[in-house]
């Protein structure tokens, strides 16, 4: 497929930096100049600068900017508390809120021409999923100590080696299905928008998909965070 016009890549090319046209660049500089990397940095800059600008100083009687952030951050906090309880939510809230805001913004900027969703690259989603995966096993060991291995052994000692293999396989399946779902949904949205724009852009054909894209972006972000929370909750509770 023809490459879409990505303005950061154009700027980098004008500056003389190598922007690769393959999924993964060859040298380190090419890897850094990948569109998904540059747009990830753009999202990060957005997430750092925009709250700073809109929030200003925290006040007792919030203005409109502070009100917005209080509602969204408070919503994510409530969401965590519902699934993890008070104590776990306080511990995991920073990570989960970061994931949520990053994924929402990263999904949403793909709807604007000239931008690309970093989450439509498997590298980004797999990286996020590996973080979640390692965290939930780390939490398991932190909460149960060495006895966490009982989560993998099933009820009877005779079947334990067999159950261990099954658990290992289903753990890796978890890793891949979580990353694949986010990646697949967002890539589908991007490709569909591109194709519709190419075929019938003059007749506003991508418009319904743009509306759906807003929904998909939000839902996928919520689902990713929800599943991450459920995995963490699962490894923190006692083995059955």
């Amino acid at each position: 497929m023809e490459h879409p016009i990505l303005f950061i890549s154009l700027i980098l090319e004008a500056l003389g930096l190598p922007v690769p046209h393959t999924p993964v660049g060859a040298t380190l500089l090419e890897k850094i100049c990948e569109p998904y990397m540059t747009y990830t940095w753009m999202v990060m800059a957005f997430l750092i600068i925009v709250p700073k600008l809109t929030m200003g100083k925290l006040e007792m009687v919030p203005g409109s900017g502070q009100n917005f952030w209080e509602v969204t951050v408070g919503g994510v906090m409530d969401f965590c508390t519902e699934n993890l309880g008070e104590k776990g939510a306080k511990m995991l809230f920073p990570m989960m809120a970061t994931f949520f805001f990053y994924i929402v913004i990263a999904n949403m900027i793909g709807l604007i021409p000239g931008f690309m969703s970093p989450t439509s690259s498997l590298n980004i989603t797999l990286a996020m999923t590996i973080i979640v995966w390692l965290t939930h096993h780390f939490l398991g060991f932190k909460y149960h100590g060495f006895k966490y291995y009982k989560h993998f052994m099933g009820p009877s000692p005779v079947l334990a080696p067999f159950m261990f293999l099954l658990e290992v396989i289903s753990n890796f399946a978890r890793l891949i299905s979580l990353s694949m779902r986010l990646f697949g949904n967002i890539l589908a949205k991007e490709v569909l928008l591109g194709v519709l724009f190419m075929l019938a852009g003059a007749f506003f054909a991508p418009l319904p998909i743009l509306c759906l894209g807003v929904l998909v972006s939000l839902i996928q972000a919520v689902v990713f965070v929800l599943l991450a929370l459920l995995y963490c909750a699962g490894s923190m509770e006692h083995a059955h």
Partner: peptide, 27 residues
């Protein structure tokens, strides 16, 4: 809210099933 939570969980079921088989075969 509960319905949404369950939708999220069950939307994962089919894919986890398929990937377990693929990963088993791959190993």
């Amino acid at each position: 809210r509960e319905m949404f939570r369950q939708l999220a969980v069950y939307s994962q079921v089919g894919m986890t099933f398929a990937f377990s088989i693929i990963i088993g075969f791959g190993i």
